[in-house]
Amino acid sequence: MNDPWVHQTVLLNEAVEALSVRPDGQYVDATFGRGGHSRAILGRLAASGRLTAFDKDPQAIAVGEALAAADPRFVIRHQGFRQLGELGPQSADGVLMDLGVSSPQIDDPERGFSFRHDGPLDMRMDTTRGQSVAQWLETADVSTLSEVIREYGEERFAQQVAKAIDRRRQERGPLRTTRELAEVVAGAVKTREPGKDPATRTFQAFRIFINAELEELQQALEDSLHVLRPGGRLVVISFHSLEDRMVKQFMARHSRAVVDRRVPFAEPAPTRLAEVHRVMPSQAEVEGNPRARSAVMRVATRTEVAA
């Protein structure tokens, strides 16, 4: 399948190394994207190895189905990774989650993810279902808009942006395109970090909200403990502070022995993760792929004690 927008996989070698792939192992690429990590994992698997991938994006699914047709070791599921728990208990030797939006999604104006290209105000990862951002903005009240922009975009001008969107709706009707939204936000956000577009945080907030990204991530993290075999690796690459904070706190919580203070002299509850560490992109990777600059990869190992 020809794809006019090329995706450069971030932390490709580091992620596959962190999975510690065994030739006969069974692995999960929970966010297939354009398949960069999946192809690298398959390159290390023997004929008896298996890789299952998830993705909501129909374009990604088309790429994955072509790969599955050519490689019997690979299966792709048209589902978000909140369905990770549908896999059997202790069925995987490693789970990889790359939480970034792929370059084809950002660069294709028809997807509506980017304020740099004018296109329909959509932002859905799965364009076959659910509300677009434009549809949601038709009815969301100022209080809801402000909360979403503040919580998911960490935007200090959230209230001003929400009110500006509401004024625009009342004066000129619904917002339909990315350029219209970007212009409204630019008029409400008076200052921004050098080199950062005023619309950056609002676009991030609406994308995260409309796709329920943080709720899906929380579910997938919890399910990874169910799916991973003892000794299996959990590898998560995040690209903004909200995601990374969730991953960091999840791994920290499950790598500490918890003492029940209500039961004197009781043994601490066993940890479920261990060997937690962080990996950052090299300077060379950041220089070659600027979208890698915000990436953080966290790695943990499932302990021997079953959940």
Rank of each mutant, 00 (worst) to 15 (best):
N2D: 14
H7E: 15
V10W: 10
L12P: 01
E14Y: 03
E14D: 01
P23A: 03
D29H: 06
R34M: 09
S38C: 00
A40T: 05
A47M: 09
S48F: 03
G49M: 06
R50L: 01
T52P: 04
A62L: 12
A66I: 08
L67M: 15
R73N: 06
R73Q: 03
F74I: 01
V75E: 13
G85S: 13
E86L: 14
E86H: 12
S91F: 03
A92Y: 05
A92P: 01
L96H: 04
L99E: 03
V101N: 08
Q105C: 13
Q105D: 11
D107L: 14
D108M: 04
H117M: 04
G119R: 05
P120K: 00
M123R: 04
T127F: 10
T128Y: 12
G130Y: 12
V133A: 14
A134V: 10
T139A: 09
A140R: 14
S146E: 13
R150S: 00
E151L: 10
G153D: 06
F157E: 02
Q159E: 12
K163W: 14
I165L: 09
D166L: 15
R167V: 14
R168W: 13
Q170F: 08
R172E: 14
R176K: 13
T177C: 11
E180Q: 15
V185C: 07
V185Y: 08
A188Y: 00
V189P: 06
T191R: 14
E193Q: 08
E193C: 07
G195A: 05
F203K: 01
F203R: 05
Q204R: 07
F206K: 12
R207C: 07
I208V: 11
F209S: 14
L214I: 11
A220E: 11
E222W: 05
D223M: 08
S224K: 10
L225S: 04
R229Y: 02
G231K: 02
L234A: 03
F239G: 09
H240E: 08
M246W: 10
M246G: 11
Q249V: 12
F250N: 01
A252C: 05
R253S: 02
R261L: 02
V263C: 00
F265D: 12
A266I: 00
A269Q: 05
T271Y: 09
R272Y: 03
A274E: 01
E275W: 00
E275N: 06
V279M: 00
V279S: 07
Q283K: 13
A284V: 02
A284M: 06
R291S: 14
A292L: 13
R293W: 13
S294E: 11
A295I: 09
M297C: 02
R298L: 02
R298T: 09
R298Y: 03
V299D: 08
A300E: 03
T301A: 01
E304Y: 00
V305K: 05
A306H: 11
